[in-house]
């Protein structure tokens, strides 16, 4: 479905990505792991077309995306749920969900909102509350719900476990799996490698802007090096 090949990107003079290649097949969960500054978020921002690569190719369903705008990516169903949630704090929960459907013109927005409530019933209870007043976990639910309102074919999740109570992390990962079961492909960026490998089909590990290791999540989990470096075992 999505394919990056030999992507190089710079932030100012920093060579953030040094030849990243990865693939997200239809309907799968792929995890993108690695430490701080390894290039995980940069990779997502390349995919969302927020940054332009210096080199490399980027295809979605066989067509190059390198001339598309960020807005067009959303229309193509490639939707990013950004790091630190970034819900709109002064908008209500309902408004946050509505803006997730900003690019849509169809009439099913209401029923899709109902669908989001089946994943995250808490959001319905807090519908008229300002998003800024929600707890971290609730904001993460809202951020994912907001992304779902754009009808993603590929959902890019940037660190959904960041700063959230462990019990909620488990709940959120369960729902990520459910969302995937209904056909949405997911590219999951995580520092919590253990949880990510648990639910993903295939994993890439980034180091210094390069793919250092890749493989089926099951196999990687048993790899000694991975266990030592990323799973703390």
């Amino acid at each position: 479905m999505l394919r990056l090949n030999n992507i190089h990107a710079f932030y100012g003079h920093v060579h953030a990505l040094r030849g990243v290649s990865l693939e997200v097949p239809k309907g799968k969960i792929i995890s993108l792991l690695g430490g701080n500054g390894a290039g995980k978020s940069s990779t997502l921002n390349i995919i969302s077309r927020l940054i332009q690569p210096k080199e490399g190719s980027y295809e979605l369903e066989g067509t190059s995306m390198l001339r598309k705008s960020a807005g067009e990516m959303v229309k193509h169903g490639v939707i990013q749920c950004p790091e630190n949630r970034r819900v709109f704090p002064l908008l209500t929960v309902e408004e946050n969900l509505k803006i997730g459907a900003y690019i849509r013109k169809d009439k099913n927005i209401k029923s899709d909102m109902e669908k989001v409530f089946t994943y995250f019933p808490r959001l319905q209870e807090r519908l008229q509350q300002k998003a800024g007043t929600l707890s971290g976990g609730e904001q993460q639910m809202l951020a994912i719900g907001r992304s779902l309102m754009g009808k993603p074919k590929l959902l890019l999740l940037d660190e959904p476990s960041l700063g959230i109570a462990p019990i909620l992390v488990r709940e959120i990962f369960k729902i990520i799996k459910e969302i995937n079961d209904e056909g949405t492909a997911i590219l999951l960026v995580e520092q919590n490698a253990h949880m990510a490998m648990e639910i993903s089909d295939y994993s890439y590990i980034l180091e210094n802007g390069r793919v250092a290791l890749e493989g089926n999540s099951k196999d990687l989990k048993d790899n000694d090096e991975v266990r030592k470096l990323y799973l703390g075992a």
């Binding site: 807005g71 950004p82 819900v87 709109f88 408004e95 997730g100 900003y102 754009g150």
Partner: peptide, 23 residues
């Protein structure tokens, strides 16, 4: 209105607004 919502969203978070497809 939707335009008003986009204005308020853009005022709060430019990156998140772009990720919603707002120009």
């Amino acid at each position: 209105t939707k335009v008003g919502l986009a204005m308020r969203a853009s005022a709060q978070d430019i990156k998140a607004s772009q990720l919603m497809g707002i120009k």
